[in-house]
Simulated scan of single mutants.
Amino acid sequence: MVIRLEWTGERIIPKLMKPMNGMLLEHIARYYFAIPYIKGRVLDIACGTGYGCHMVAKDRKREVHEIIGVDVDQETILYANREYNHQKVTYIQGDALDPELPEKLGLFDTILSFETIEHVQDDQLFMNNLYRMLKPGGRLILSSPFGRGRGMPTSEPFHVHQLTPKEFEELFTRFSSMEMYYQRGVTFEKPRDDVRYFIGVAVCTK
C-alpha cells in the first residue's frame, strides 16, 4: 500500500515542507520544550505523522520505556509507522473524545497534547480523558492557540473554536500544580505585560 499525505496547512509533514517553514519550526519547538519533562510511559494524543514521537524516543531513550502515538486518521497512522518507526513507539488510530479511550490505553507518566484541543467539539470531555489517563504525579504538557473563546467562530478553517487565555487556564484547575508558558515563534517565556501572546503552553502535574 502506498500512502501519500498532502500538507494541508494543519497536518505537519516535515518531509514535504521547507526546513525553515515557520509552522514546522514552531511545532518542533514544542517537542523540544517538553522533552525535559518527559519520562516513563508516554502518550502523544493527536500525534499526527509521528515526527514528535520519534524525536522523543531518540532524545529520551534512557528516560522513556514506551510511547503511544494516537491519531484519528488511519492514513496518517500508516504514514507514521512507515516514516517514523521506532522500537519504543506504537502508533494507534483513536479518537481523543472516545470515553472508552482511558480503558483502552491505560495510564501514563507523561501526556503530550500539542495544538489539539482547538480541534475538538467538547474540550471538557477531552480534558477528562487526559486526566483519567494520567498517573498520580504524572505530567501533562498541553498547548493551544488563543482566540475569541469557547463557542465563538474562528478564522481558522480546521478549528472548532479557540479558547481565551482565561478559559485555557481554567482547564487545569483540578491538577495539583500548573505552570503557564507562552510561545512566540520557537521561544517560550513567562507572561509579560507588554506582550500579546497567541499560544499558551501549560505544564501540569496531577
Rank of each mutant, 00 (worst) to 15 (best):
M1N: 09
I3Y: 02
L5N: 04
E6V: 14
I12E: 00
L16G: 09
L16C: 07
M17H: 11
M17S: 12
K18F: 14
K18G: 10
N21L: 07
G22N: 14
E26C: 07
H27V: 03
Y31G: 02
I35F: 05
P36R: 07
Y37S: 07
Y37P: 10
G40H: 01
G40N: 00
V42N: 03
A46R: 02
A46T: 10
C47Y: 11
G48K: 04
T49G: 05
G50L: 05
G50F: 02
H54C: 13
M55H: 08
V56F: 09
V56I: 15
K58R: 10
R60F: 03
E63Q: 13
H65L: 11
E66I: 11
E66R: 13
G69V: 00
G69R: 00
V70L: 01
V72Y: 00
V72I: 12
D73P: 08
L78W: 08
Y84D: 01
Y91M: 01
I92H: 08
I92N: 03
G94Y: 06
D95C: 02
A96V: 15
A96Q: 10
P99Y: 08
L101Q: 12
E103W: 15
K104I: 13
G106W: 07
G106I: 01
D109S: 08
T110K: 00
I111C: 01
L112A: 07
F114R: 00
F114Q: 03
E118Y: 06
Q121C: 14
Q121Y: 13
D123G: 04
D123M: 04
L125Q: 15
M133D: 15
P136W: 06
G137D: 13
G138E: 10
R139M: 13
L140P: 15
I141S: 10
I141K: 04
I141Y: 04
S144W: 01
F146G: 06
G147P: 05
R148N: 06
G151K: 02
P153Y: 09
P153L: 09
S155M: 09
E156F: 13
E156L: 12
P157T: 06
F158E: 14
F158L: 12
H159K: 05
P165V: 01
F168Y: 11
E170R: 09
F172R: 03
Q183L: 07
Q183F: 10
Q183C: 06
R184S: 13
R184L: 13
V186I: 04
T187F: 09
T187H: 08
F188T: 01
K190V: 12
D194S: 10
V195D: 10
R196A: 15
V201L: 09
K206R: 15
